[in-house]
């Protein structure tokens, strides 16, 4: 089924919330539309649920890998070169700590960077419609509507108080590039 983007541009929070409510009443689920803002609103402002985020996994996995590598390097070195130093046991934890600490943090940072790139560059499945007014404080509601329901979604947004409604003409494929206003006024 072809999906078409419909972007409603709202001047204030009250009308934007009305737009979200109107879409909910029309049967749209949370995954069917996005709210675009130039600053973060408190979680739940638009009725969205707080969910788990994948980004947390990256530093966790990175830290575990880095720790394991640090442990392996230091542990294996001590076992491979069994030199008793200062009467300490052959396998001592204190000398290993700094290198394990470094390994853990370095890998955690690198994995977080990778996670950030991954999260930012994921291909967007929906529309890439955008309006520069959103950067000036307007609120955008981007609906991923089916071809048949696009006009209805546009009308709903307009009724809810959208100052402008933009209908997607064609898909904008490049997620890494700057989103641009590409569409036709409804």
């Amino acid at each position: 089924m072809a999906v078409r983007g419909v972007l409603g541009v709202f001047k204030d929070l009250d009308t934007a919330i009305a737009g979200v409510d109107a879409l909910n009443e029309l049967g749209y689920k949370r995954d069917d539309f996005e709210v675009l803002t130039n600053a973060p609103y408190p979680e739940g402002t638009f009725g969205e649920e707080s969910g788990m985020h994948r980004l947390g996994l990256f530093p966790l996995v990175g830290a575990a890998c880095g720790f394991a590598v640090g442990l392996l390097i230091t542990g294996a070195t001590q076992m491979a070169y069994p030199l008793v130093t200062g009467g300490k046991p052959l396998f001592s934890i204190p000398p290993m700590i700094i290198i394990m600490y470094e390994g853990t943090l370095l890998a955690a940072v690198i994995f977080t960077v990778i996670g950030m790139l991954f999260e930012s560059r994921l291909p967007r499945l929906g529309s890439n419609l955008w309006d520069p007014r959103i950067s000036r404080g307007y609120i955008g509601i981007l609906v991923h509507a089916s071809e048949e329901k696009a006009d209805e979604a546009a009308a709903t947004l307009r009724r809810a108080g959208a100052e402008d409604v933009i209908l997607e003409e064609r898909r904008v494929p490049a997620p890494a590039r700057a989103p641009q206003q590409k569409g036709a006024r409804a």
Binding site: E34, L36, H53, A108, T112, A174, A178
Partner: peptide
């Protein structure tokens, strides 16, 4: 390509914290 979706804001919030 940052657009300011709720998902992107969550990513920013967590990435800055990490």
């Amino acid at each position: 390509g940052f657009r300011g979706s709720i998902r992107e804001w969550r990513t920013v919030d967590r990435a800055v914290a990490y």
